[in-house]
Amino acid sequence: MRALVLLIAAVTLFTACQQTPTKVVSQEPIIPGTITAEKVMADNPVILDVRAPFEFNLAHVPGAINVRWEDFSQQDPRYRGSLQTDLFAIARRLSLIGIDMDSKVVVLGKGRQGNGEEGRVAWTLQVLGVKEVYTLVNTSYRQLNPKEDRPDVKNKPYWKPVVDESLTISFDNFKAYALQQLPPMKFSSKARTKALGGIPPGALDGPAPSLFGMNFNDAKGKVVILDVRSPQEFGIQNLTQHKEVKAPVVNLEWREFFNDKGMTNREVEKLLTNKNIGKDKIILVISNHGVRSAAVTYALRAMGYRQSVNFAGGYEQWK
């Protein structure tokens, strides 16, 4: 009897080994539209892996380059969500790893298991003017592109970023739209401020910020603040707890914007519609320090929400 059981087990094991491996469907659009993951991979893009160095060194896609979102951000812990002020220095660094504005770049990360790091790096590249940037989960890329022989990355000449300022918003402007009131004019000395003390209230407001070609008054009526932290974080602290904040605040966790392969999730459009967020809205995206909010801004832009912008300073700067 024991011999028969062992024979059946051996036959089962042999049969399992002979099964054809499951084929991964690679014709799925990598972003909304017609560009597929298969086509992107066939063009030998520059591969960035944003996982921690320890994980990267354990195993990574051949030819991938390990970067961290912090590499491109300010070192001061109070402003760590904000990009370095010298964007040309970032561009020079990118040129040394084969990236310029015309490069095709795939950013690999942990997807929904991470904290949006690949979306943050993708957003950073877009701010600098890199036109084609895509995100994927590390394991999905291995399935889609099993080739071991990737060409070596070649340096690119130094290039000057063509900055897309519409992808990010300063603290002062974020605050102005959140409070829906113009920031007061700042003066260089107390004496000048005192001398102008008789001017009527409101006369010193400005300069008025503008978003997406709209003046302040027209834009503020379209603004919605999208908090993409977890519901638990939102419950503990959020902008609705500040009475002076007049803009509507909506919570929708960042993971909803990506599928299991790290690609943009079109199903989230239904959730946005249910929360009265259409493509006509100006969406100010916020998280703790601009990582998850950058990932969501990247996803929103890919889905056609062209008036979405990342507040990179996040709650850390708001505090």
Rank of each mutant, 00 (worst) to 15 (best):
P21L: 10
K23Q: 12
V25H: 10
K39W: 15
K39V: 13
N44R: 10
P45D: 08
P53N: 13
E55N: 11
A64M: 04
N66H: 10
E70V: 07
Y79Q: 11
T85P: 00
A89L: 10
I90S: 03
I90A: 00
L94E: 01
L94Y: 02
K104D: 02
L108V: 08
G109S: 13
Q113H: 14
G114Q: 08
V121L: 06
A122T: 11
G129S: 11
V130W: 02
E132W: 03
T135S: 07
L136D: 04
L136A: 09
L144N: 10
N145W: 03
P146H: 13
P157R: 12
P157I: 02
W159G: 02
P161V: 11
P161R: 07
S166E: 14
L179R: 10
Q181Y: 05
S188F: 08
A191P: 00
R192M: 15
D205S: 10
D205C: 00
P209M: 04
P209L: 02
N215D: 15
F216Q: 12
N217G: 01
A219M: 09
A219L: 11
K220R: 15
V224A: 02
I225N: 02
R229T: 08
N238I: 09
K243Y: 04
V245T: 06
P248D: 12
V249D: 08
F258V: 04
D260E: 14
E267P: 00
E269W: 04
L272R: 07
K275Y: 06
I277A: 02
G278N: 14
I283F: 10
I283A: 00
V285F: 06
I286F: 08
I286Q: 05
S287H: 09
N288Q: 14
R292D: 00
S293K: 07
R301H: 15
R306D: 15
Q307M: 14
G314W: 04
